[in-house]
Design a protein around this nucleic acid. Structure first.
Lengths: 138, 138
DNA sequence: CAATATCGCTTGCATTTTGCAAGTTACCTT
DNA sequence: AAGGTAACTTGCAAAATGCAAGCGATATTG
């Protein structure tokens, strides 16, 4: 029962997936300016590898030929439960900013949050789940 | 909502955690000989960092002063849901060996498997995880 | 239409991390 | 006492990463 080292073996891939899934990122520039400080050569390399691994797709935008839209595939969006559990764990064990209510929220609403993430993906809704550092989930 | 790069930012930490949690590994030598081909200096470094991060403990064994027993802390065992979701995802998307039954097993028995993992941790049961003797985790 | 800006990269090189083989130290067995 | 074993450490080579600059294809502006 092995762990895919394709994304969990490096520092950036999972952050890219999270940003696609939760923050609603779509373009190279958004990743570049996200404050994560990822170098552009590494970003290009990781996007290439995630695409090769069937986790994201890269399509040129219609209205602007320079832009490329990156999106999660079904395989990619199926990582939502992993991400959610990871965020729950992080909130419980790694945060100092009173996260207790948040943890309860996330655990109680696990299925609802996952459903919402999947709905957004299906409908190509680009709005982030997270707004200005605050959770929008009721 | 950030992802802990302490373990998810490198190639080996998560494998070490999995081996502690599921395969029942306890000692340096077991990791060394697990077939993962991790270099001993890196292994020592990762064990040190996981300990510093509060995810594992390192205790000298009573009966043999050379041996060190590594175990997950509560913070560490709380990663079980993450691991399980990751294994489910891997089984669904990355395996060729007829995993359909296995996926169903894992998804249907999610809570039972987690309970079993936690029980073994609580009782310090070193046996690798099996589910009702039906199948093993290689 | 020409000049300029933007987007998604690539390139060259310095720095950091990793991998490999060979020790080293403390402890255990005979 | 001699030899083996467990858990490391060390030195050096190889690979991955980070950084700054540049490049080609659009798009926008004047």
């Amino acid at each position: 029962m092995s762990i895919s080292l394709e994304m969990f073996g490096d520092r950036w891939s999972l952050l890219i997936i999270r940003d696609l899934m939760i923050r609603g990122f779509r373009t190279f520039k958004e990743f570049q300016e996200s404050g994560e400080e990822i170098a552009t050569n590494i970003l290009a390399d990781r996007l290439r590898k995630l695409e090769a691994g069937g986790i994201i797709t890269a399509d040129a935008e219609q209205t602007d030929g320079r832009k490329v839209n990156y999106r999660l595939t079904e395989k990619g969006i199926d990582l939502a439960p992993v991400l959610l559990e990871l965020l729950i764990w992080g909130a419980r064990h790694e945060k100092t900013e009173a996260p207790c209510a948040l943890i309860e929220q996330m655990e109680k609403n696990r299925e609802r949050i996952l459903a919402e993430v999947r709905r957004r993906w299906r409908e190509r809704d680009p709005a982030p789940l997270q707004v200005r550092g605050q959770w929008r989930w009721p």
